[in-house]
Design a protein around this nucleic acid. Structure first.
Lengths: 155, 155
DNA sequence: ACTCTATATTTGTATACACAAGTAATGTAT
DNA sequence: ATACATTACTTGTGTATACAAATATAGAGT
């Protein structure tokens, strides 16, 4: 009898702790999200880019001087949901990229990094240590640990 | 002589590893950020709320039936940068909150949760376990660990 | 060749956000 | 009392985002 009773209490407590710890994680992720944006946005803005624009430029550099098509860019972006067309428009406006219809499959658009875009990326790279500086509250090992945990979280 | 040389290499390697680990952390935080939003947004949308609207309602419940003024709401929100005025407007539109000019200091606005708002919160609460379910890739202990690390990261 | 479906990108629209400027009430110093 | 600064919230504006619908090309089956 008392066994059943205590089990119930334990279950209840366990459930409660359980819920609260994951809730704390969720709130923490949202806070951190916001904090990261506040660190990162002004950094890229100082270089005349948004985070996503820089992200796309980096993807383009990965294949440079080969082109990358829209779909591939979309797949590789951290933020999948955003509108690649209009992002690329901005980069072309600024002279950092070019677009051409792919002759092999005319539905596809080939996007290439320009020399100017490459220079901009190198300029940003030089400044990068200043950005990473802001993550130094965590040790080298802790940074690796958190990365691994986040990978695991997303499954 | 060789000592100096090897030291240089070690420094260089260390520097490189260092940089890459923090870079990986940054990219990982951005990816996770996006992933969390994709888990959370549809959940709240299914209840006719945005994440931020729910966040404000929770803050209001914390003081209920006492009012909370705009400034306090802004301070307590996860995303500090958003526009509280227009957020509250939405909640009032939906009948979840009320606003009154504070008689003690007529610059301030007192926001209160309505009965309807309270019911909506309870409805969301009941469904919460379904949301937390998505974080179960991490064990209880890992969830706590990551929370602590994120706290440390933000300083 | 013709229709149907799938793929790849674009456009439209409503909503959200960031930042700056604006308004209104209060406090403070002369 | 009057002028100036500060606080607390609001509004305006351009940009960004989410989601859905539209276009345009390619491939597959008949």
């Amino acid at each position: 009898m008392w066994h059943v009773y205590t089990m119930r209490i334990e279950d209840e407590i366990q459930q409660k702790d359980f819920k609260d710890d994951y809730r704390r994680l969720l709130v923490n992720l949202l806070f951190t999200n916001n904090w990261v944006n506040q660190q990162v946005m002004p950094f890229f803005r100082a270089h005349g880019l948004t985070l996503q624009q820089h992200n796309v430029l980096s993807i383009l550099r990965g294949q440079h001087p080969e082109p990358v098509c829209f779909g591939d860019i979309q797949c590789r972006m951290a933020d999948r949901s955003s509108n690649v067309t209009r992002l690329i428009d901005k980069l072309i406006e600024k002279g950092y990229a070019t677009r051409d219809i792919c002759q092999a499959n005319r539905r596809m658009i080939e996007v290439r990094l320009t020399e100017k875009g490459l220079q901009k990326l190198e300029e940003v790279d030089e400044d990068m240590p200043a950005l990473y500086q802001r993550f130094h509250n965590l040790s080298h090992e802790e940074a690796v640990l958190v990365s691994n945990m986040l990978d695991k979280l997303r499954g």
